[in-house]
């Protein structure tokens, strides 16, 4: 059973990774190249932030490595979230079989991207953060942990309240933990930035990034739900066939007996 769960997670990850790799190749890379030309045109402020003077190498190497990174990222998320975590948490996730995959996908998005973005929204290159990298990494991981905790609490609250009070209080109770996240983000360090990219372009970039991540999790969850359905349909059918075989056999036996 564990292996079947892991295989489904890996397959969902492969689909998600492929989709996200395509997204990076078709949208991410060209958009970033464009942002970089605008940036050098606007500010004359070279794109050397945090990358020091190291040779970046040909642009294509970075593009290919980024597409590969996107694929691996999708496979990693699929394996961890839909392989291992789904196996462990399936009994605790509320909802029917199909919904569970989507709930886990939504939680994954909130944990990996949504919650940390409340504090540090995605930025195009050229927008430089003033805070030190290690401070940001620490807060990013902290927000991710808070997002995961909020999802867990919401699930727990929903299951408990659903059994005692009914659906509406359960939904309300599940919504409460998420209200803590914006408060936590407001308590976090202010993230001052110095930008050499026009605000409209930065906004477009941010939205494309959001759509990319939502899309990645949607593909992961949909593929996983589909695989689950396929495996579930496959199983009972075989046992049904067995039992019908047995009954027809029994019937013929009875007929012969008569």
């Amino acid at each position: 059973m564990l292996t079947r769960h892991l295989r489904r997670g890996l397959q969902a990850g492969a689909a998600g990774g492929l989709a996200f790799g395509l997204f990076v190749a078709l949208l991410g890379n060209p958009l970033l190249r464009y942002v970089e030309t605008v940036e050098s045109f606007e500010g004359g402020h070279s794109h050397a932030h945090a990358h020091g003077g190291s040779a970046v190498g040909p642009e294509t190497v970075g593009s290919i490595a980024s597409v590969a990174g996107g694929v691996v990222f999708g496979v990693l998320l699929g394996t961890v979230a839909f392989g291992a975590l789904y196996y462990l948490l399936e009994p605790a996730i509320p909802g029917a079989n199909g919904t569970r995959s989507y709930l886990l996908g939504a939680s994954g998005f909130l944990t990996v991207s949504g919650a940390p973005w409340l504090l540090f929204p995605p930025q195009p290159p050229g927008v430089e953060a003033v805070l030190a990298t290690d401070v940001r990494v620490r807060w990013y991981l902290g927000m991710a942990l808070a997002g995961a905790l909020a999802c867990g609490l919401a699930g727990l609250a929903y299951t408990r309240l659903r059994a005692r009070r009914g659906r509406l209080p359960a939904v309300f109770g599940a919504a409460l933990p998420f209200c803590v996240l914006p408060i936590l983000a407001a308590l976090g360090p202010a993230a001052p930035i110095s930008s050499s990219v026009p605000a409209a372009l930065a906004y477009v970039f941010r939205m494309v990034t959001v759509v990319g991540q939502v899309g990645l999790w949607f593909v992961l969850a949909s593929t996983h739900a589909w695989l689950l359905r396929r495996d579930r349909i496959g199983e009972p059918e075989s046992t049904d066939a067995d039992s019908t075989d047995r009954t027809t056999f029994a019937d013929t036996y009875r007929v012969l007996d008569r």
Binding site: F20, A50, H51, W117, T209
Partner: peptide, 22 residues
């Protein structure tokens, strides 16, 4: 990973995924 070679080669991916810890 902050090692320059790894870091720079996946720079686009990290931006496209909205990961800003770099």
């Amino acid at each position: 990973a902050q090692a320059p070679m790894l870091h720079d080669s996946m720079h686009n991916f990290r931006h496209a995924a909205g990961i800003v810890c770099h």
